[in-house]
């Protein structure tokens, strides 16, 4: 455990004209920590995720990131090229729709290998071996390595997207509804896989989800958002078992019991 946060976010806001995307969001994220951001559609959680991953620039506020060399860098003062490099090497982004995060017309192996080549690996045999290894870690049979993700099921595509993101050994992964749109049985398998990978690799992650069960299973800490603002935050089990804010109580009481 380190004493310095990996990511430090202060008073982050994003406005679309006069409309609030997210407002005044402040938090720290430490290495190995998984933070869930929950809230209903339109609560600003995806806007926040896009600002944090610098896919979108905020209207105001700061975010600093501790680079591998231990130096803190202000994310929104980096050059576009530096941010792209960070995104390719030290970060991952798992989209809700795998088609947004994969290249659908190249093979599964190439999808994984491409990220390795982006960080400078040029040895074909080694790239392929690493790709095979990662496909097996996300439970894709190695005889599918030359198939295109177009031929994969939704759950397999999502697992492939995860392998593509984790192959470079990132320290921070952003996930936008990683289990959205999947059947529950496929969801359970994916969650279990994610949980194992996050623990084994000591990843820090920010997971946006509207599913409180997903948040409970994956995260240690949670932020609840409504109308662009954080209405409650804390330990995940504390927020879910003893919700304090009116909106969190509504969310928790709306879970269907099976």
């Amino acid at each position: 455990m380190t004493d310095e946060p990996l990511l430090r976010v202060s008073a982050l806001s994003k406005f679309y004209g006069s409309r609030v995307g997210c407002e005044n969001v402040t938090f720290d994220l430490w290495p190995g920590e998984v933070l869930a951001v929950v809230g209903e559609s339109g609560s600003g959680k995806t806007t926040l995720l896009n600002c944090l991953s610098t896919r979108l620039l905020p209207s105001s506020g700061t975010a600093s990131y501790r680079m591998r060399d231990g130096q803190r860098r202000e994310l929104y003062r980096m050059s576009e090229a530096e941010r792209r490099f960070l995104m390719r090497t030290d970060w991952g982004f798992v989209h809700q729709n795998p088609a947004d995060g994969l290249r659908m017309t190249v093979s599964a192996g190439a999808n994984v290998g491409e990220r390795l080549m982006a960080v400078g690996d040029r040895h074909y045999g080694r790239i392929r071996a690493t790709a095979v290894d990662w496909l097996s870690r996300v439970e894709i049979d190695d005889d599918r390595i030359d198939d295109e993700p177009r031929a994969f099921s939704g759950g397999m595509r999502q697992r492939l997207q995860i392998a593509r993101n984790l192959v470079t050994g990132p320290r921070l992964v952003f996930m936008d509804e990683p289990t959205g749109g999947l059947d529950v049985s496929v969801q359970a398998r994916l969650l279990d896989l994610l949980r194992g990978l996050v623990t084994d690799l000591g990843l820090a992650a920010i997971v946006v989800t509207h599913d409180l069960a997903v948040a409970r299973l994956l995260s240690q800490r949670m932020m609840v958002m409504k109308d662009g603002r954080v209405v409650e935050s804390g330990l995940t089990d504390r927020v879910l078992d003893d919700p304090r804010a009116p909106y969190t109580q509504l969310l928790v009481s709306s879970i269907l019991q099976v």
Binding site: G234, L235, D237, R238, D241, D242, R244
Partner: peptide, 9 residues
Amino acid sequence: LKMLYGNYA
């Protein structure tokens, strides 16, 4: 007990 474990505020 839950307060002592941080599970309740």
